[in-house]
Write a protein that binds this DNA or RNA. Structure first.
Ligand SMILES: [Zn+2]
Ligand SMILES: [Zn+2]
Ligand SMILES: [Zn+2]
Ligand SMILES: [Zn+2]
Lengths: 140, 140
DNA sequence: AGGTATATTGCAAGCTTTTGCAATTACAAC
DNA sequence: GTTGTAATTGCAAAAGCTTGCAATATACCT
């Protein structure tokens, strides 16, 4: 599991600077339940460091995504949520009718990943998906 | 294949009004290559009907989505693209490294759809996906 | 410790999409 | 055809996210 320490290590390894802003943003993500929004990260950061700008939050999230340290998932709420890669992978089924969200084990996507790799040589980044549709109740 | 006429039929069947704005928006989508953005639809509409507002375009797209007449796909461009459901289903593999986009037959997603239905009773709406990752060339 | 290069930040402006509200319009009923 | 009613629209503002640029700060070198 990635702890802030590991993320910090990966940042320095890649030549990125350790700024107080980045450290606080990383901590906010790691301390979350794993489905945190940019605005929620921002709120936590400015509580301790009020002059930080939200564009720094977005730029840091983009960097962490690029390094594979966080995933970005759209649950259809009008804002996107972030998950630290170190907290384990899974997916979600989102009912567009009633809003119910069911968790899905990572293994369900493995066959698709394999087909894409075998038949297209394509390494699909399928971590922490939100799959939309209709749940059992709403399909009647 | 849905023609504008079929979309019009479905709108009236469901009790929605046929406004000139809606008719022009539907035509723009049907006349497109199947990957049209809201801004592009808007440009076509105001060429003939200059007082139309772009929020009407977005509201109409939301309605057509709800009725299953168009799909919405994010290719990672910072804007979303729309596809008329009547033009047939397929998916895309999008390389995050070089930007290459490969088409994918609809059948590749069928096993996943079936597993979700069998094991979770969930009817996944997996039409016209953009799957991100790395293409063969960029995986070396 | 001090100096330097350049990565990073804050700020302001911009882009895409959504939303509240009052004015308008489609459609049904007469 | 007129009227009534509710759906739809245009407008303006706002929400979420991105970007250009000048100012700042980190990490490296001495
Ligand atoms: Zn999750
Ligand atoms: Zn449901
Ligand atoms: Zn397509
Ligand atoms: Zn590529």
């Amino acid at each position: 599991m990635n702890q802030p320490r590991d993320i910090v290590k990966k940042l320095t390894e890649h030549g990125y600077r350790l700024t107080p802003q980045r450290l606080m943003i990383v901590s906010a993500i790691e301390d979350s339940d794993g489905h945190i929004s940019a605005e929620e990260i921002y709120a936590q950061v400015i509580a301790k460091y009020p002059q930080v700008n939200i564009s720094t939050v977005y730029r840091t999230l983009e960097l962490l995504k690029k390094l594979g340290l966080v995933t970005e998932t759209d649950f259809g709420e009008g804002r996107v949520r972030y998950h630290p890669a170190g907290k384990g992978h899974h997916h979600h089924l989102v009912c567009q009718e009633c809003g119910a969200i069911v968790d899905l084990d990572e293994s369900v996507l493995v066959p698709l990943k394999n087909v894409l790799l075998r038949e297209y040589g394509f390494s699909a980044d399928l971590r922490h998906l939100a799959i939309f549709g209709r749940c059992v109740k709403c399909s009647q």
